[in-house]
Design a protein around this nucleic acid. Structure first.
Lengths: 191, 191
DNA sequence: GTCTATACACGGATAGAC
DNA sequence: GTCTATCCGTGTATAGAC
């Protein structure tokens, strides 16, 4: 499972990212990472102090990437509703789950301040960013003035994160899509 | 961490339930279960064929319990909105996450048809049960006729499941509560 | 039913040769 | 930088005594 055209540390980080996504922190062993990366034992411990160090690099990169991906949807043109919809409807590998959100179910990640930090920050950033947009929608009269932007932002993020759970439970993206449709229907500006 | 007044198999199952909740399937070892239950190695393998067998018993029981708890909120009196709100607002140990939903992030659970089945069935039952109630609300004119009951039911379950993710990410139940408030605000029958 | 002994691979890492 | 050797504990059982 060699990853081509990258330095050894890069291959190790990318391999760790994939394995963390697939199996979580607890379920990912140094040996599995080395094999996936085509790197030896000594090589891994030369570049990283151990599993937590490597995981930290992987998690930080995954978090950054998620932020950039989300911002691409959210910064687009259109009404507040359009931008939220664009975020909700963007293409996702639904059955793989969220590579950041899944880490919240990993006891060793939650137990470590360092490993948890990028997860916390990314989801909090997302919530805040969505709240700004919803607030714009409220200010423009697009959404009801009775809505709390922070609450709606939390609902949006929760729907996505929970949609992954339903999709994985059923083995099909359908439940994720249904949840998103439901939310968009509730959110739709009244004609 | 002995559990009093139970037979050995009972203590093993209850211990497994707690450890699966806290650490997931991959993160739970037979040895940890034995210690938590105050049972010996031989004892555990006498009553159960191994870790998957014991986990299956534990997961089935947890799934049943979740169903019963949900039904208690959903079968109450009141309007459709009231019953959905009662489900959303019921007391939860939010920071522990959902003992059923968290299993969807466990690669070994998802990989096993037997272990996955109770998870799938429970969440699908919940979605269906909520859809019935939402449909009643639509039929009574309480909710907009333009809403799809199945979609809204998915949104409700997703919001809860995703709320756990946000709460665990931040280390506080606040984000869960915010998501629920947002959903209830969107769902509220228009005056 | 429960206990102790044994087994063998894996997890996670260190040491030192090249 | 990478490789191989080595280490010690844990994961997940099986065997057989009591």
């Amino acid at each position: 499972m060699y990853i081509h055209g990258m330095s050894t540390p890069e291959r190790l980080i990318e391999s760790t990212r994939e394995l963390l996504w697939e199996r979580g922190y607890v379920g990912t062993s140094p040996k599995a990472i080395q094999q996936h990366a085509g790197a030896g034992q000594g090589s891994m411990y030369h570049h990283f102090t151990g599993k937590p160090d490597l995981a930290l690099a992987a998690i930080r990169r995954t978090a950054e990437e998620m932020r950039a991906t989300a911002e691409a949807s959210l910064a687009g043109a259109g009404s507040a509703y359009d931008r939220v919809a664009s975020y909700l409807l963007r293409e996702r590998d639904v059955l793989r789950g969220c590579p950041v959100g899944r880490l919240t179910m990993d006891p060793d990640v939650i137990a470590s301040d360092e490993l948890r930090a990028p997860v916390t920050e990314t989801l909090e950033w997302l919530r805040g960013r969505l709240a700004e947009i919803v607030q714009e929608g409220v200010d423009q009269g697009e959404f009801s003035a009775s809505l709390d932007a922070g609450d709606i932002a939390s609902t949006v993020v929760s729907t996505v994160q929970g949609g992954y759970v339903l999709a994985r439970a059923t083995g099909s993206p359908e439940a994720f899509d249904a949840g998103v449709r439901g939310l968009l229907a509730l959110l739709a500006p009244r004609a």
